[in-house]
Design a protein around this nucleic acid. Structure first.
Lengths: 236, 236
DNA sequence: ACCTGAACACCGTTCAAGT
DNA sequence: ACCTGAACACCGTTCAAGT
């Protein structure tokens, strides 16, 4: 417990945020309430408001702590490799703190830390010679993927096919033939699969590469905004 | 008010969901509570539990109602045009009900309606001749974009540059030079811009086209899973 | 001046009392 | 048997009372 030791240390913002991150890692985002966090710190709820204006600011601080774990930009890489590497680092961080995604999606305004990360990513593209115009669109297209987020709506497939009864499989095949065809198309490497039947790392890399390869092609073709329609057509 | 008229009609699931969608459209997702919804229907809160097991099921039902507004698949289009058109229709629907996104992101399991929509999209790809394997990865890569979602984390830029004081602009340029360079790169058509300084429709189409063009290229090259690394390399 | 406990205005949902 | 009001176990945050 070490209740006394905890209580003896004076509370400060860093300690509050560290405790909140640890609590969320351990018990999930729904365990984060001002009251429960205070209890974990051996403190009265109102004591938190000295170091954090309100719950929103607490959540922002937790996300900032997580984003700060992403590795800094590496020297000596071309823009594509640099973006790819940093994005994969961000993904590794988000896998450690899966609750961070929901906060970021729900929060209205970006924090300074989020802006700094975004700015750094933009400067990597610009340093690679991409036009500011192209980078603008690329940042919109990449969106939250630069933070290592997959775009999936639901973490896992409804259920692994092997967990279904024969009747359920029958029903699925009759009702959602497309989903069944695609889900059973590819027996993945079982060592790298957790349980959903998908190699999430492979899927993430497939997606980011699809985007970055497309961007590289546009850049090579000296893309400018007015060329958008023409480019799209000429690719055919 | 028409309080009496409202109360006379017997409550049913459809009426509950319709009222919930209308309330969310009007007042946002934070206005949706069992108590407030009951009040809007002129009913005691517990009366809702007859038609909806709990709040989660209510939220699922609201999303299902929204997804059902997306236009059905059109005949006579090639796979790419079909996916593009349906995705843009979904985007138009989500613009009418912007709260639906947050529910979908937060909900754990997909509903039958969501699965049916996904299945339909998959069958469009398969009918176009894409391998089940490729479609698998493409669905992961597209993710929530098939529901018309942009991947942006924050709805708008922090503030339109024109709203900033000279001191604030100075600060932004010194701190986030990349963001400033990219944000000011392209004076968009002012008629199609709401206030963020971005043409959201253009950015959405840029993103979906970047993905679909990439998919088409992979398909043309007769993509199979084992080819992934080779394909990525040969593009260079 | 500072700290903090009680209180306020909400939640979703249970459950038993009333019809 | 059905309906529903009160109650329960939570919230985030305000505020005044106590030191």
């Amino acid at each position: 417990m070490a209740k006394d030791g905890e209580r003896r240390d004076p509370l400060n913002r860093a300690r509050v945020l560290r405790a909140a991150v640890a609590l969320a890692d351990e018990s999930g985002l729904e365990a984060i309430s001002m009251r429960k966090l205070a209890q974990a710190l051996g403190v009265v709820p109102m004591a938190l408001y000295k170091h954090v204006a309100n719950k929103d600011e607490l959540l922002d601080g937790m996300v900032d702590a997580v984003v700060s774990e992403v590795e800094p930009p590496q020297e000596g890489l071309d823009w594509k490799a640099a973006v790819r590497r940093r994005t994969l680092s961000a993904r590794a961080v988000m896998l450690r703190h899966p609750w961070a995604r929901r906060i970021m999606e729900a929060q209205a305004a970006p924090t300074h830390v989020i802006l700094a990360y975004t700015d750094s990513m933009i400067r990597t593209f610009l340093a690679g010679g991409l036009s500011a115009d192209l980078v603008h669109h690329v940042m919109h297209a990449l969106g939250s993927r630069i933070f290592g987020f997959t775009q999936e709506l639901h973490e896992t497939a409804p259920t692994a096919p092997s967990d279904l009864s024969p009747e359920q499989v029958q029903y699925m095949m009759a009702t959602f033939p497309g989903i069944v065809a695609v889900a059973t198309a590819r027996p993945h490497d079982p060592t790298s699969v957790v349980g959903s039947g998908c190699d999430d790392q492979f899927e993430f890399e497939f997606g980011i590469d699809l985007m970055l390869d497309g961007v590289e092609r546009l850049h090579r073709n000296d893309w400018r905004s007015a060329d958008h329609d023409r480019e799209a057509a000429s690719v055919l």
